[in-house]
Design a protein around this nucleic acid. Sequence first.
DNA 1: ACTTGATCTGAACAGCCGTTCAAATCTATC
DNA 2: GATAGATTTGAACGGCTGTTCAGATCAAGT
Lengths: 195, 195
Amino acid sequence: MARTQGSHSAQTGPRIREAALRLFAKHGYAAVSMRQIARDVGVQAGALYNYTPDKQALLFDLLKGHMDELLAAWKAEPTPATPTLRLEAFVRFHIRFHLARPQAIFISYMELRNLDPDNFAIIEGLRKRYESTLTGILRDGLTEGSFAVPDPALATYALIAMLTGVNTWYRDKGRLSVDEVSDIYWDMTCRMVAR
Amino acid sequence: MARTQGSHSAQTGPRIREAALRLFAKHGYAAVSMRQIARDVGVQAGALYNYTPDKQALLFDLLKGHMDELLAAWKAEPTPATPTLRLEAFVRFHIRFHLARPQAIFISYMELRNLDPDNFAIIEGLRKRYESTLTGILRDGLTEGSFAVPDPALATYALIAMLTGVNTWYRDKGRLSVDEVSDIYWDMTCRMVAR
DNA sequence: ACTTGATCTGAACAGCCGTTCAAATCTATC
DNA sequence: GATAGATTTGAACGGCTGTTCAGATCAAGT
């Protein structure tokens, strides 16, 4: 037996990434075997190596792709005129973007330690880049006089943790919609940083 | 060869738990083998089974022990008179307790999915019990008129995530002491919930 | 000094791990 | 219809996995 009917790299490649994302998110990188991923795709384990040099690259590509998408999506957002409006845009964007990709976010936070040092440094750099945009907004509002946070760096950590935390409890069929959650979190954010 | 000189269960038992805690925190439950833990303790893998029925129980005991300790420590704290003072006590307690046990906290958040369903339910119940004490404080302050949170349940999630997030960036030799961090986080908390 | 029970070793078990590769079979092009 | 290149299989590699257990050696009680 060998090449199978209807086999195309344009189909198998994405399906492998989807299966890896789903399985890594559910069981964790270390707990998932290449054979499990292959079984999920409906292929033998050896076939995976036409699409990734090794398991590590599979994880890295998922995380790198997610971070690139995050930064690009934020860059594509309009930039409101005032720091307060920019902060509101960030809060709503962060919640919306993260709730739309629960698996990728889960992996991005849980599997960092399974990255090789070089790969870790790259992902960490991208994350810092994203977080620094929030710090910039806070600093702008501080110098402009509309915010009164005691420490912009810590406020960044606090806000990112608070906003990302939504992913741990939000359920699609819950009592609140994404917009309602965003309203409440923007309210809390506003009170936290406002003068 | 067999029993070794100076071998005592009162020593080996704790050393196994310490090694497991350290290694699970560093590499993840699934990525750590029983032989690695044994090597760290200076013993053969078979000896571990005098102290734990299996690897799963080792993880569960660490998480269960941690949650018991957390709940007991909070119970031992004095209960101030007003909701505002109780909230301040909670914020400072949470940061202090968590920063003192980074590895246990790390495991408690990262390895939940590696628990058997039964074990998961137990840990999850204890966590809910802890979080509900915060919700209670928020509700008290709400009915008493000193707080003005839009939603106590969401405020609980937001605050817990924000406070626990300190563990991801805090470094012992950093620019801020635990008390200084607590001051700033209490300030942000206060502004977030105050009327 | 002798016995009893606690403690550990070292080997073994069956099974899974990531990865490689020649051979087989497909699709696409001419 | 022949040919070339893309794609997958299936077997194999050495090594690691959690767990069990008989036998060896220790510490402690008498």
